[in-house]
């Protein structure tokens, strides 16, 4: 066993008392391209996520972050290993997962409200009930008054908030977010980080958020999974023991700086950032 996985295992040990909510056991994923080449997107990923945790995944492009998230969502099969959620092996998409992608993927022919209600149509949730829930979610993401607008009429940050409301509509236990704020400017992004922390604390979901911003990962995560590419590996898991709710000024503290510095050092060691 490599020293990296040993570190990962050490951190998991703390959670091992109860069976983990999400268990990722020695997961490997190999893609075969159209030309027949094999790409090792993920190699021996092993980690456990407790219920209600906020996990962030950080790493450079191509290290398999999105692949790992899509595996958790049951969108693609794994090549080796095993993924369990709540004790059941993941074999396909599940009803108790909500996803947020880098672009908001709102359907332009639907109003904001109808977009947020999309999961209800697919999962067969009664319309009246879904509507009520959608309206309360829209007010939670501070979009009240925009229900009947079309997505094109909203700013990027507002669109992404609507897509978070949509991901929460069917009250999933798990929220998977793939670089949700990557396309936003720095100011909006910080604002969205605060909002997300508030929403998470209020809803008690288990969140797995992928980002390539180290400070975003540290600001939001209970633990930060640091990944490195070629092949995609879980380098280490770093716990962030900063009290919640965390404020933006907390980013200036030595504790925060120490953790981000440590992650940056790990990634630099791997020659993935300069």
């Amino acid at each position: 066993m490599s020293p990296e996985t040993a570190t990962a295992n050490n951190h998991r040990a703390a959670n091992d008392a109860a069976p983990p909510f999400i268990a990722i056991r020695h997961v490997g994923k190999t893609f075969t391209t159209l030309r027949g080449d094999q790409i090792n997107a993920l190699v021996d990923i092993d980690c456990a996520i407790g219920e209600g945790n906020f996990i962030t995944i950080v790493g450079p492009s191509g290290c398999g972050k999105s692949t790992l998230l899509r595996i958790l969502a049951g969108l693609i099969p794994i090549t080796t290993g095993r993924v369990e959620i709540g004790g059941d092996a993941v074999t396909g998409p599940r009803r108790d997962i909500g996803m947020v992608f880098q672009s908001s993927i709102l359907l332009p022919w639907r109003t904001v409200l109808d977009n947020v209600m999309l999961p209800a149509e697919i999962l067969g949730i009664p319309k009246a009930q879904a509507r009520e829930r959608a309206l309360s979610l829209l007010s939670m993401v501070r979009l009240e008054g925009f229900e009947n607008k079309y997505p094109q009429e909203l700013s990027g940050g507002m669109q992404q908030r609507a897509s978070i409301a949509r991901a929460l509509l069917h009250d999933p236990k798990i929220l998977l977010m793939d670089e949700p704020f990557g396309a936003l400017d720095a100011m909006t992004r910080e604002q969205m980080n605060l909002e997300l922390q508030r929403i998470w604390q209020k809803s008690g979901k288990t969140v797995v958020l992928v980002t390539h911003s180290i400070s975003e990962a540290v600001f939001l995560g209970d633990r930060v999974l640091v990944m490195t590419p070629r092949p995609g590996r879980l380098e280490t898991v770093i716990p962030v023991k900063i009290a919640r709710p965390r404020g933006l000024d907390g980013m200036a503290t030595p504790e925060f700086g120490g953790i981000t510095h440590e992650i940056r050092r790990l990634l630099k060691q791997e020659g993935t950032i300069e």
Partner: peptide, 26 residues
Amino acid sequence: VDTDRIELLRSLSATPSQIFWKVKFP
């Protein structure tokens, strides 16, 4: 058709006919 839209519907365990009518056709 934007593959992200299809992926979104798939992540909600949509059936092929739901994917067709709600995303592909429009």
